[in-house]
């Protein structure tokens, strides 16, 4: 990667759009690595911990989804000034949990929250960053996985392409020798969700909610059939698959809608 002239360190910036800012805080939590990272890069923009600003970036990390007209203006401006742009966390990668509202009429969403005052507050569907500008790399998860983020950052500093996992959470879950969550009688999206989280939720007695989005080659009909076999209706299966993945499912996956 080409580097800024000032001190030879790449300029790295972080921006947040509509999100819970958990990914951003996850980065403040790398205390051990933080000082090492600061040796290698110049962090030029990071609102939650700093007050200062800069003009252009070697790497721009984008957190959150695009959900207002101003978001669109801002992301164009950032893309114009960024050599490499990375979507950080599921809101930026796919729209994430915010996109749940896309499955409903926008007016209804506004009305539920603001009643008769709904027209005072304009809103657009929650979109992934890639719906508006070119995204070079992705770090998935809700919140984004810290080791994966470090891997992407290190790779970019070294000038190579980061490797991203593309197999199911089930693989990682099996390696941990967990009892199958579906066999326990709970719902689980492990079979179709992209690995990389180290199967945290099933390992802690919970079920997979699909927060890293589907693997790229899921067997769509097979997934619904499997969940039906475990006693979940098509309707429930689809509803729960959409928790983090409304945009993907609405876009490519039409099963269950015939």
């Amino acid at each position: 990667m080409s580097q800024s002239e000032s001190n030879g360190k790449p300029k790295v910036a972080f921006f947040d759009f509509t999100s819970c800012e958990g990914c951003q805080l996850n980065k403040l939590n790398f205390e051990n690595e933080l000082l090492d990272i600061l040796e290698l890069v110049d962090i030029v923009e990071f609102r939650e911990a700093m007050d200062d600003k800069a003009e252009e970036y070697d790497i721009a990390f984008i957190e959150g989804s695009i959900s207002t007209p101003t978001c669109i203006e801002r992301i164009y401006d950032i893309r114009r000034r960024a050599k490499v742009l990375v979507a950080l966390g599921q809101c930026a990668v796919s729209g994430g949990i915010n996109a749940m509202k896309n499955a409903m009429p926008m007016e209804e969403v506004q009305e539920t929250v603001y009643g008769n005052d709904k027209y005072l507050f304009p809103s657009i569907p929650a979109m992934p960053v890639s719906a508006v500008v070119k995204v070079d790399y992705e770090v998935r998860g809700c919140p984004m996985s810290p080791p994966e983020y470090l891997h992407v950052l290190k790779s970019l500093i070294l000038g190579r392409k980061p490797e991203i996992k593309d197999y199911a959470v089930c693989v990682e879950c099996k390696l941990k020798e967990n009892e199958c969550v579906l066999e326990k009688g709970m719902f689980c999206l492990g079979p179709i969700t992209r690995a990389g989280c180290d199967a945290i939720c099933p390992s802690n007695g919970q079920y997979c909610t699909g927060c890293r989005g589907p693997v790229s080659n899921i067997n769509k009909n097979g997934a619904v059939e499997m969940l039906k076999r475990y006693g979940f209706s098509t309707e429930e299966a689809l509803k729960r698959m959409k928790m983090f993945n409304t945009n993907e499912l609405e876009k490519e996956i039409k099963w269950g809608k015939e």
């Binding site: 499955a103 409903m104 969403v109 539920t112 929250v113 603001y114 919970q206 509803k239």
Partner: peptide
């Protein structure tokens, strides 16, 4: 900004709410 969590909770199993 407006996100609308109250609305998109509707129709979901209550056990998903902590998540």
């Amino acid at each position: 900004e407006l996100r609308g969590f109250e609305k998109f909770a509707e129709g979901r199993p209550a056990e998903d709410m902590p998540q």
